[in-house]
Nucleic acid binder design. Structure first.
Length: 423
RNA sequence: GUGGGUGUAGCUCAAUUGGUCAGAGCGUUAGACUGUGGCUCUAAAGGUUGCGGGAUCGUUCCCCGUCACCCACCCCA
């Protein structure tokens, strides 16, 4: 027997109802905020991600699915932002309007060790606002994420926000962190010793207790007080930017927390970063995250353009949801026929009703009336049409309401109107 | 990628210390009810006990390998 590839999932009919619900809400809300959908290819040049995510990231080093074709080297996209920015530049969207709000829904691929909430093929729903560095954009994006979550009916999530500062701030901060950490480096956990070299910022959100203890002793209150009194590693502009973001979020009464230790793993992030977590997910608790990437467009060969975005993990969203979506087609009309002649009539009716936009189905197996009724019941249909010899003779059909159990005879010429009235 | 756990019918789970039953509930199908679903009752179908090796007179149970999933780490959405 064939098996699906490790870390992939078949999304079965009973689950697709939930997927479709989330997708529908997303299309509606993004449209409400005037975002436009973009669909980029699933495969990209491998090097696109070295440049955007960063060569030292785990994703680029170990988790890309590579596709070699002759001399070309492609990969399955591990995330959406780099592709969108590539498309933005390649299609000269910057020259058309200069400012654009985009969103996307689709599969991403990373060769991680699978776990609940961590698949090798998973789905992102995300957005990117390209062309403005104003804090109003940050505010809108975080509020949009919050808005989406509440419309999805996700409950109990937490939003954490931080600012990494601009590229220079980030560099300075990294240097500062290295400096302060250096004397204590040998006390760090094995992972953090590697991080110390490759990606010091990651030390800040290590879960190891001794590491956390060391971090607490560091003089990085800079970040902590980005909102407050002390001057930190943030330059004046970045500090002002972050303050305005926070004030804007406050004004919208958004429930969030500033977490000075929040860093994101991808190199391209600058200034505002945020993360949404949910307690139902265990260790993989981030259901969504995002941030500014003011240097990425230029880094990928475009003009100097500020931008920001975020993405949710669809599978994780669904894990965070407690109620399954209803799958049944409530408007379905089920047609039951008895005998050859009635069958012909039923097929005709089926076709007519469908042309009129009424969802309907029938029993294809020539089951007994009882069998067909069972099938009708299982289909979730609210109304049943029964056609047998009696009905044919009288040029009527029997219309049964499955809820009440009651039924009545309806003349053929009145049927359509009757059905439309009821639906 | 690292460490650990689990793997029995479509689903959720049983099977005394390796030795006659590989079982139950739900679901499925059929019948009780040949023009009426849900409820009830009855019956049937359904398993190479993840896969491959090994040890044993014999294994679902022990050992090794492998695959998948789960948990933590790592990473990240």
């Amino acid at each position: 027997m064939f098996k699906r590839a490790s870390g992939t999932k078949d999304i079965l009919p009973q689950e697709t109802a939930q997927w479709q619900r989330l997708e529908k809400i997303s299309h509606q809300i993004f449209s409400l905020y005037n975002y436009h959908e973009i669909r980029t290819p699933l495969i990209e040049e491998e090097s696109l991600f070295d440049r955007s995510l960063g060569k030292s990231t785990e994703i680029v080093r170990k988790q890309m699915f590579l596709i070699k074709k002759g001399r070309d080297s492609y990969c399955l996209r591990p995330e959406g932002t780099a592709s969108v920015v590539r498309a933005y530049i390649e299609n000269s969207l910057d020259k058309k309007s200069g400012f654009i709000k985009l969103y996307y829904i689709g599969p991403m691929f990373r060769a991680e060790r699978p776990q609940r909430g961590r698949l090798r093929q998973f789905h992102h729903i995300g957005c990117e606002v390209i062309g403005s560095g104003e804090p109003e954009v940050d505010i809108e994006i975080i509020a949009l994420a919050d808005n989406l979550l509440s419309l999805f009916s996700v409950k109990g999530y937490r939003i954490q926000v931080n600012s990494l500062g601009c590229l220079e701030d980030k560099k300075k901060f990294i240097d500062l962190l290295r400096q302060q950490l250096k004397p204590k480096a040998n006390k760090l956990c094995d992972d953090c010793r590697v991080r110390f070299k490759d990606n010091v910022l990651r030390v800040l959100d290590c879960k190891n207790e001794t590491c956390r203890e060391i971090i607490r002793t560091l003089d990085i209150q800079a970040q902590v007080s980005a909102l407050g009194t002390q001057s930190g590693h943030l330059c004046l502009e970045c500090k002002d930017h972050f303050e305005r973001v926070c004030k804007g979020l406050d004004a919208l009464r958004l429930d969030y927390k500033v977490n000075p230790y929040l860093v994101r793993g991808l190199d391209y992030y600058t200034r505002t970063v945020f993360e949404v977590t949910h307690p139902a997910l265990g260790a993989q608790d981030a259901i969504g995250a995002g941030g500014r990437y003011d240097n990425l467009v230029e880094e990928l060969g475009g003009p100097d353009t500020a931008a920001m975005g975020f993405a949710f993990g669809m599978e994780r969203l669904i894990l965070a949801l407690d109620a399954p979506a209803e799958a049944q087609n409530k408007e379905l009309i089920f047609i039951v026929s008895l005998g050859e002649e009635a069958k012909k009539e039923a097929l005709l009716l089926l076709s007519q009703l469908r042309k009129e936009g009424l969802a309907c189905d029938t029993d294809y197996e020539n089951k007994s009336l009882k069998g067909a009724m069972r099938l009708a019941n299982d289909s979730g249909a609210k109304r049943i049409l029964i056609i047998g010899e009696d009905e044919l003779k009288k040029e009527i059909v029997t219309l049964k309401d499955m809820r009440s159990g009651g039924q009545k005879e309806v003349k053929r010429q009145d049927l359509l109107a009757e059905l439309k009235r009821g639906s």
